[in-house]
C-alpha cells in the first residue's frame, strides 16, 4: 500500500505545518483558495505574492518538492485546456512566437493556470501534512454536518477496499483474455464497473447491518481523540 500509514497523499512528518490543528488548516485553505479565485487575473503581482507565501509554507512543511510535483499531474487536463483557450477564443489577436492568438484568451489561460496551480498546490500541501483521521476531526470541529463527515469517513475507509476489488475484477478480466485498455472491450469494462457499483452498494448494506448489530442509532458516538487516551 502507499507510503506510511496514512492515505496516498499523506507525507509523514513532524513539521509545524504537520502539527497545526486540522480545522485551522482546512479553514485557511478554504479562505486562501477563495481569495486566489477572486483575484482579477491582471494583478500579476498578487499571484506572485500568493505563490511566494505558498512556497514558504511548503518549505516549512519539509515535504519534498518532487513528492508534491508528482501529484500535481491531476492538473494536467486543466493545463491542456488552458493552452487551447488562446487559440480558440475570439477578440483582438496578438503574436506569440509567430502564432496568432486571442489576447483575452491569453489572459484567461494565464488566470486559469495561475489559479489552478496555486489551488492544487495548496490543497496538496494540506493533504500531505494532515492525517485522514485529523482531517475528519477537523471537519467536525468546523461544524460540518455529522452525516457529511460520516460519509467522508466511510469513503476514506472503503476507498482501498473498493480499489482492490476493482483491481481483482480487472485481473479476472485479463485472465480471460479481455484487455481493459482496448476500446473493443470497453462494453465489458462498463459492465464490470456496473458490477462493482452493485457490489459496493451491497457492501454498504452489510456494513449498515454490522453497525446496527452494535447498537448504532444514526448518530456516531463521541469517541476520545487519540491524544486523550493512554497507550497500552
Amino acid at each position: 500500500m502507499g507510503a506510511g500509514h496514512g492515505h496516498r497523499l499523506h507525507y509523514h512528518g513532524h513539521s509545524p505545518v504537520h502539527r497545526a490543528p486540522a480545522h485551522l488548516k482546512i479553514a485557511t485553505l478554504l479562505a486562501f483558495v477563495l481569495l486566489v479565485v477572486a483575484t482579477p487575473h491582471a494583478w500579476v503581482w498578487a499571484f506572485a505574492a500568493y505563490a511566494a507565501l505558498l512556497l514558504g509554507v511548503v518549505a516549512l512543511s519539509r515535504v519534498p518538492a518532487a513528492y508534491l510535483a508528482k501529484r500535481m499531474v491531476v492538473e494536467v487536463p486543466f493545463v491542456v485546456f488552458a493552452v487551447l483557450v488562446p487559440f480558440v477564443s475570439h477578440g483582438p489577436r496578438t503574436e506569440v512566437l509567430g502564432l496568432s492568438v486571442s489576447e483575452p484568451g491569453l489572459w484567461a489561460a494565464w488566470g486559469l493556470l495561475a489559479k489552478g496551480t496555486i489551488g492544487v498546490l495548496a490543497s496538496l500541501t494540506v493533504a500531505a501534512t494532515t492525517e485522514p483521521q485529523q482531517l475528519l476531526a477537523g471537519l467536525r470541529r468546523l461544524r460540518l454536518p455529522d452525516q457529511l463527515v460520516q460519509i467522508a469517513g466511510f469513503m476514506l475507509r472503503y476507498l482501498d477496499v473498493v480499489t482492490e476489488e476493482l483491481g481483482r475484477m480487472m485481473v479476472a478480466m485479463r485472465s480471460r483474455g479481455c484487455d481493459p485498455r482496448s476500446p473493443r472491450h470497453w462494453p465489458a469494462v462498463g459492465r464490470t464497473l456496473g458490477a462493482l457499483f452493485v457490489r459496493s452498494y451491497e457492501r454498504g448494506e452489510r456494513v449498515h447491518l454490522a453497525m446496527l448489530s452494535r447498537g448504532y442509532d444514526g448518530r456516531m458516538p463521541d469517541l476520545p481523540a487519540p491524544a486523550h487516551r493512554e497507550h497500552a
Binding site: 483521521q133 469517513g153 466511510f154 452489510r206 456494513v207 454490522a210 448489530s213 452494535r214 447498537g215 448504532y216
Partner: peptide, 30 residues
C-alpha cells in the same frame, strides 16, 4: 444487540472506523 454479539463473515463489513481502537469502542459507546 448488547446480549447477542454477531461476528460477520467478512471483517471488512464489520470494521468501518478509522482505527482499531475506534472500531472496538463503537459498540460500547453506542
Amino acid at each position: 444487540r448488547r446480549r447477542v454479539g454477531v461476528v460477520f463473515q467478512d471483517p471488512d463489513d464489520q470494521l468501518f472506523m478509522g482505527s482499531v481502537h475506534d472500531d472496538v469502542a463503537f459498540g460500547p459507546a453506542n
